[in-house]
Write a protein that binds this DNA or RNA. Sequence first.
RNA 1: GUGGGCGUAGCUCAGUUGGUUAGAGCGUCAGGUUGUGGCCCUGAAGGCCGUGGGUUCGACUCCCAUCGCUCACCCCA
Length: 418
Amino acid sequence: MIQKPRGTFDILPSDTPLWQYIEKTARDTAANFGYGEIRTPTFESTELFHRGVGDTTDVVQKEMYTFTDRENRSFTLRPEGTASVARALVENGKCSDTLPLKLYYMINCFRYEKPQAGRSREFYQFGVEMYGAADAAADADVIALGSEIISKLGIKDTTLHINSIGCPDCRPKFRQALYDYFKAHEDELCDTCKQRLETNPLRILDCKSPVCSAIGKGAPKSIEHLCEGCADHMTKLKNHLDEMGIEYVVDTNIVRGLDYYTRTVFEFICTGIGAQSTICGGGRYDGLMKQIGGPQMPGIGFAMGITRLILAMEAYGAVPANDHAPLLYIAPMGAAAQCKAAGIVAKLRREGVYAEYDLVARSLKAQMKYADKINAKYTLIIGDNEIESGKAILKNMQESSQVEVDFTDMQALTQAMK
RNA sequence: GUGGGCGUAGCUCAGUUGGUUAGAGCGUCAGGUUGUGGCCCUGAAGGCCGUGGGUUCGACUCCCAUCGCUCACCCCA
């Protein structure tokens, strides 16, 4: 038995209706916000992610599926969607189009991580990107879209956390202030945080250790170290969110792990789906486009993990019932009747009706059981007598009532099932 | 990459201090007299007890390894 690769999963017919529902909800909502769909290759030049996502990130350093092709060129299965979209816009000259550019995508991504609840090696995400709008109004508009989708999917207990991590001007100063603060408490920090102090002092703020989090409470806050421009941006974002009726909390612990983020970062966090509780995460990336060789153009966007949305929907009973059932099941007895049934079903299907008939030569009784199991609304029984007379019994499965119909008259048959 | 938990029929799980033909429920299939579903009843198919070693007269049961699943750290969607 050859098994699927670790961290991947099959999506079976019993699950696909939910996936399709989520995808449709996301697409339709994005379309109402003026976004158009973009589709990019599943793999890209490895260099794109080094420059776009950032050389120092965990994603690039140890989580990418990188391979060389027959010409010895290095490619990588996309670990996220933002870099590809930026590349596609530059490569196709779309940066000269009317601004802002608004794109959405529905993709699979790949990261070599150890699987757990809400995290897999191949995962699916819906994401949006807006380019050419530096104003905080754009941030609010993007967040509003994420909020709207989550709300439409019926996901409860979700909180929007926002923060500003500053820009290339003010961030280094904040980082230094943070470093200085924790350096003074270095002896008290846990072992992992002692390492974090050198690698990424921002992450100490997340530490679950009581000692570290206690120390963290007194640490400098990023929003207190913003330059004037970044501070104004944050204020305007909050004003817009307030006006739009979107609730949020300012969470200075929100620090995204991808290098391209600037200023606004945000996460929609849903309690009750395990440790991987961010169902939607994003932020602003004003330097990304230039970083990958395009023009200087501000951008902002988010991505939501489809699997996490599903976990959340399941947790809150928001999964819609699957009511796909045949209008008619035809139970033929014998080869001649089966042939007749095939003809009737073919006509119904051409009219867009979901109809079925026996394909495995079951007994009549077994066919009735089958019709019941697939939830057929009506069953039509055809044998030799019926072929001769052209009339057959149509049974309403719910009411258990029967009427005789002329099954050679499609209009009469359809009418009888109204 | 680091930890914890778990691997027995398609699914959910039993399996007594190691003892002979490994069980149940659900599901699947076939029946319960001659052309009719849902309830009920009967029967059948389906397991090298994750894999490989070891201890033992004997291992689903104990030990080791390995693979897989799962949860958490980390990171992120």
